[in-house]
């Protein structure tokens, strides 16, 4: 499918709006097992992203995504700032300029995971954003094997992300701030897994609406 730079900009603005909307929700999740700032951090970063990209034009997708990444790195702070920042920085290096197929999305997912793991050294099951992202990327791969349409593949990806997010609830955290709680970290949904789901949801919904 073709995705214009304008559309990608649009998607980032929508992501920003959704994260700003969910500022309190994400912060409450972080209050239960962290330090009550994940929503604040994400909202601060994406507010700045919105400002930065809204009235600006970019050479290409890579340039746009790199701006997003650098803005996140220099405004979010905490654990999520470098993690999301690096994820988008990695995306900026490989994002196609207009034509996207299932392989482009798989490649994007893989470079995101690689960036987050290089920095944070976490595996799936440690109650982090990776518990949303890894299954989401796996769903894309499986959809490809099954030969599903891009639309169906994206839907599967979103579904897997949501399930992954919810599956963090019973987990014992072993990475990030929540790990300090030990057993008490169980029974709560991970804030980073939640913001990752929100981001994936916006992307998928926007891309699908673009297909129609």
């Amino acid at each position: 499918m073709k995705v214009t730079s304008e559309k990608i900009k649009d998607i980032f603005i929508k992501i920003a709006d959704v994260l700003i909307e969910n500022k309190n929700y994400l912060t409450e999740l972080d209050a239960a097992i962290g330090d009550a700032d994940h929503g604040i951090n994400m909202a601060r970063g994406f507010k700045k992203v919105k400002e930065k990209i809204e009235d600006d034009s970019f050479k290409n997708n890579s340039d746009l995504v790199k701006t997003v990444a650098m803005t996140l790195i220099s405004t979010v702070g905490g654990a999520s700032g470098p993690l999301y920042g690096t994820a988008f920085l990695n995306i900026s290096k490989i994002i196609p300029d207009s034509d996207f197929d299932i392989d482009s999305f798989i490649k994007i997912g893989e470079t995101v995971i690689e960036g987050i793991q290089k920095l944070g050294k976490a595996q799936r099951g440690e109650k982090t954003m990776l518990d949303t992202i890894i299954p989401a990327v796996n769903a894309l791969r499986e959809s490809k094997v099954k030969g599903l349409s891009l639309e169906r593949a994206l839907e599967e990806c979103k579904k897997a992300a949501e399930e992954g997010m919810k599956a963090t609830i019973p987990l014992l955290a072993t990475k990030g701030r929540a790990s300090y709680l030990g057993e008490r970290s169980k029974g709560h949904q991970d804030p980073g897994a939640t913001s990752s789901y929100l981001i994936i949801k916006v992307i998928v919904d926007e891309l699908i609406s673009e297909m129609e």
């Binding site: 309190n24 912060t27 409450e28 209050a31 962290g34 330090d35 009550a36 700032d37 604040i40 701030r177 300090y180 709680l181 030990g182 008490r184």
Partner: peptide
Amino acid sequence: RVPSAEEPTFKLEEDEMELGIGIHGEPGT
């Protein structure tokens, strides 16, 4: 309570305390 948050990061009853806290308002161990 973090200035930008509405609520403290954890709540304790008047006869409870937390042991093993960190320095970010996280609940203790």
